[in-house]
């Protein structure tokens, strides 16, 4: 039975089955958008934490680090409540839409990128602070330079954020509703198809998901190696 399911899964993948591909495409769009938006929020946030002398700095660092362990189902529940018809953001009509799923994933991905980016930027700041001070750079110039100098490490973080988003199931299930052809992504489809006993489709999507996650990790690994060799 498992062997049959596996062979059918391979057939689905190799034939670029339209149903499978539409799920994969939606997953890539939702998680890609979440990682990009998350990075747009996380990088300025991390940069602010690194540069600020505000009293909020330490609480923000603790908050960011604590957010790394944010359970996706709790995020799903909170976003569900926010987006539900009677919730404070109900008027947006995002519940059970890809926009709502992106919103939930942004909440999950932003702290990861921000916490790791803070560390990267802080290390670079340590390295360059005397240079920046002796060149009389403004805080804004220092920040721009820090972001530029760490651009490759930050790109790797973006990939990590994307990896986290695309592998996530709890929040997108609750907020998206797993509606076929509308909000069904790879992880939610795998959960559903497995519960229905449709192992071929679940396995096909599982293979693609593993492939994507592997490609991302391999890309991040080699990008880091190449850049270390080039810039070390």
């Amino acid at each position: 039975m498992i062997a049959d399911a596996f062979l059918q899964a391979l057939a689905l993948v190799s034939s670029f089955d339209p149903a499978v591909m539409s799920i994969v495409w939606l997953s890539l769009k939702v998680s890609g958008a979440a990682a990009l938006i998350g990075a747009l929020i996380a990088l300025p946030l991390a940069a602010w934490v690194v540069q600020t002398r505000s009293l909020l700095r330490e609480p923000m660092i603790v908050l960011l680090n604590a957010s790394l362990g944010l359970p996706p189902v709790i995020v799903g529940l909170v976003v569900y409540l926010l987006l539900s018809r009677t919730g404070p953001m109900g008027a947006l009509g995002w519940l059970f839409t890809p926009a709502g799923m992106i919103f939930a994933q942004v909440i999950l991905v932003t702290p990861i990128i921000a916490a790791l980016a803070r560390q990267v930027l802080e290390d670079a700041q340590q390295e360059y602070q005397d240079l920046f001070a002796s060149l009389a750079l403004s805080r804004w110039q220092s920040l721009q330079t820090l972001l530029f100098e760490t651009r490759f490490s930050l790109l790797v973080l973006l990939l990590a954020g994307f990896g986290r988003a695309i592998a996530e199931v709890g929040a997108v299930m609750m907020v998206g509703g797993n509606i076929a052809g509308h909000t069904r992504v790879m992880t939610t489809a795998i959960a559903l198809e497995t519960s229905k006993g449709e192992l071929a489709l679940a396995l096909a999507l599982g293979l693609i998901l593993i492939f994507i996650v592997l490609v991302i990790n391999i890309a991040a690994h080699y990008a880091r190696q190449v850049l270390r060799r080039r810039y070390a």
Binding site: D130, L131, A136, E149
Partner: peptide
């Protein structure tokens, strides 16, 4: 500071 320059033992290079 803009009229000064400082050399360090380990030069911080971009």
């Amino acid at each position: 500071v803009a009229l000064q320059a400082m050399l360090f033992q380990k030069p911080p290079l971009l």
